[in-house]
Simulated scan of single mutants.
Amino acid sequence: MSFESAQAWLAEHAPDLRLIDHGVSTATVREAAAALGVEEARIAKTLALRFGDRIVLLLAAGDVRLDNAKAKAAFGARPRMLPPDETLAVTGHQVGGVCPFGLATPLPIYCDLSLKPYPAVFPAAGSLTSSVEVAPDRLATLIGAEWVDVCSRRAADAATPAAPPPTPLP
């Protein structure tokens, strides 16, 4: 289902966006950046997270880490990554190809502010070898995502300006 559902969703909602099938693995940020010839920060990784009894998807720049304190402040609970089998069950996409397109289950989706500095980012497109190029604001609009600040760069890598503190979400 995964690639086909993402492809069908994109064909309906954003037919102008071109699916890129690399023919090589893009399952990790490092592999995707190498296949695309871009910096790791431009890979929009999709994380399936549990906050208490709530499951959400979070898209973030490939070079950031989820900041547990920021995430807890924004979502009201400590984040937990979903295990691969549960991720597949709720998204319809296997880990390494998880994307916000063509989901098996409607989920709340959030985009981390770490994506904002880039003219275009590359989220996966439902398989371990595919992606799509899209501007961050357009991505958020297409998938109905809310912007949040829940990730951090390592101090040595902090090249983007600090964002205001997170606002707790409903």
Score class of each variant (00 low, 15 high):
1 M>Q: 14
2 S>L: 13
3 F>T: 07
3 F>G: 09
3 F>K: 13
3 F>S: 07
6 A>I: 08
6 A>R: 12
8 A>M: 04
8 A>R: 15
11 A>W: 03
12 E>V: 11
12 E>I: 13
13 H>N: 15
15 P>M: 06
16 D>I: 03
19 L>V: 13
19 L>R: 14
20 I>C: 06
22 H>M: 12
24 V>F: 02
27 A>F: 02
31 E>Q: 14
31 E>S: 13
31 E>L: 13
32 A>D: 00
33 A>M: 08
33 A>N: 05
34 A>F: 01
34 A>K: 07
36 L>F: 08
37 G>R: 01
39 E>P: 00
39 E>F: 01
40 E>T: 12
50 R>H: 01
51 F>C: 05
53 D>A: 14
54 R>T: 11
54 R>D: 07
54 R>G: 03
55 I>K: 01
55 I>D: 08
55 I>Y: 00
56 V>H: 00
58 L>V: 14
58 L>N: 00
59 L>T: 04
60 A>S: 14
61 A>F: 03
62 G>E: 02
62 G>A: 08
62 G>S: 05
62 G>K: 02
64 V>I: 07
64 V>P: 00
65 R>F: 11
67 D>G: 01
68 N>Q: 11
69 A>E: 13
71 A>P: 07
76 G>L: 07
76 G>D: 10
78 R>G: 09
80 R>W: 02
81 M>H: 09
83 P>D: 15
84 P>R: 10
90 V>C: 15
97 G>D: 03
99 C>F: 12
100 P>D: 08
100 P>M: 14
101 F>P: 03
101 F>I: 10
101 F>D: 06
101 F>W: 08
102 G>T: 05
103 L>T: 04
103 L>E: 01
105 T>M: 08
105 T>F: 02
109 I>Y: 04
110 Y>F: 15
111 C>Y: 01
113 L>A: 15
114 S>Y: 02
114 S>R: 00
116 K>C: 04
116 K>P: 00
119 P>G: 05
120 A>K: 10
124 A>S: 14
124 A>W: 01
125 A>I: 07
125 A>H: 07
127 S>V: 13
128 L>C: 00
129 T>I: 03
130 S>M: 10
132 V>M: 11
132 V>T: 05
132 V>L: 14
135 A>G: 12
135 A>N: 05
135 A>H: 06
136 P>C: 06
136 P>F: 01
138 R>N: 04
138 R>Q: 11
139 L>D: 09
141 T>H: 11
141 T>P: 00
141 T>S: 12
142 L>M: 10
143 I>H: 03
146 E>S: 13
147 W>Y: 12
148 V>E: 02
148 V>I: 12
151 C>I: 09
152 S>C: 07
152 S>V: 11
154 R>M: 06
156 A>T: 09
157 D>Y: 08
160 T>E: 15
161 P>E: 05
164 P>I: 08
165 P>M: 14
169 L>N: 11
170 P>D: 07
